[in-house]
Amino acid sequence: MPRAIEHQHHTGFFVRGPSPAARLLLFSLLSLVLLATDAKLNYLTEVRQGFLALAHPLQLIANAPRNLIQNVGAYFHTQTSVVHENSVLRSQALKHAAELQRYKTLEVENERLRKLLGAAQLSSQPARLAEILHMGRDPFTHKVVVNLGSRQNIVAGQAVIDEVAIIGQVTRVYPFSSEVTLITDKGLSVPVLVERNGLRAIAFGRGHDAMIELPSLPTNVDIRVGDKLITSGIDGIYPTGLAVAEVTHVDTNTDTPFAHIIAKPLAGIENHKQLLLVSIPKVDRPADSNTLQNPDPQQNVASPRNKKAVTPKRHGNN
């Protein structure tokens, strides 16, 4: 059996710089300081942005083999012009599909909104088509990295959707790329609405599987398996009425105070490369003054202040 590694005898026997223990102490301390700085203060955002801008060429090189394979494959598969046209058409179709989806849910929503709020105005949302660069470095944090960044006027907090449903939210923006946290991530929550009866709730990612859950709802809550959850839009981040998930599991065991509701996200994050970054245009919505002007009892129910509130009045209607 050959020896695997023969170490070097050329480096002087005694002198090897500082002792390993001293180096360990120095570098562990440095790491711990960095950890504390990053966890408690947010000084390192610029450092990270700067470095990722520097590392952008490296990233391009790393992506080159995949792109090369894809390009060669596309060339042999079809004519280049057809491929180009196809990609243009696909991006258009994606944009249209997202708008269509919004309109469909808008119709369902419109009547209720008219009754509750008078008139619901939804201005057109600027959307940007982005492409997934890679699925993040850590398989256990539900994040993807897309190819648009602060140079393309992407800001943290924008909602990310595909042609079916919501995917997540832009959480970090780098100069040439940005990080999207998926709705299945443990740290992300989405205010949702049950499409069938308008019940409002907040959906949290479960983290370990690709599911989301609705905690803190009473056991007598009116949610059934197969109910579609859409965004309620009361957070001012997600546009109203986008599909989020479908309820797959409802456990209303009366032993526990809360119902155990699990839903499966409708967006297929693994299936495609393109997604849309949308943002709500900054509009002042004076919800409180609205409430004052309109002394309608139902208005209070709809006000964004009681975010987590389950609207008990609607239970009677259904």
């Binding site: 390993p20 180096r23 360990l24 570098f27 562990s28 440095l30 790491s31 711990l32 300081v33 960095l34 950890l35 700085t37 990053d38 966890a39 390192l44 990270r48 470095f51 990722l52 590392a55 993040g136 470095r137 850590d138 944090t141 994040k143 990295v145 970090r172 990080e179």
Partner: peptide
């Protein structure tokens, strides 16, 4: 150890996680 620390820092930067965990 210094090289390892520097490589860890690079990993922290490209992974986008908590800064310093790979370095440590």
């Amino acid at each position: 150890i210094g090289t390892a620390w520097f490589a860890g820092i690079l990993m922290d930067l490209i992974s986008g996680g908590l800064f310093g965990q790979f370095a440590l």
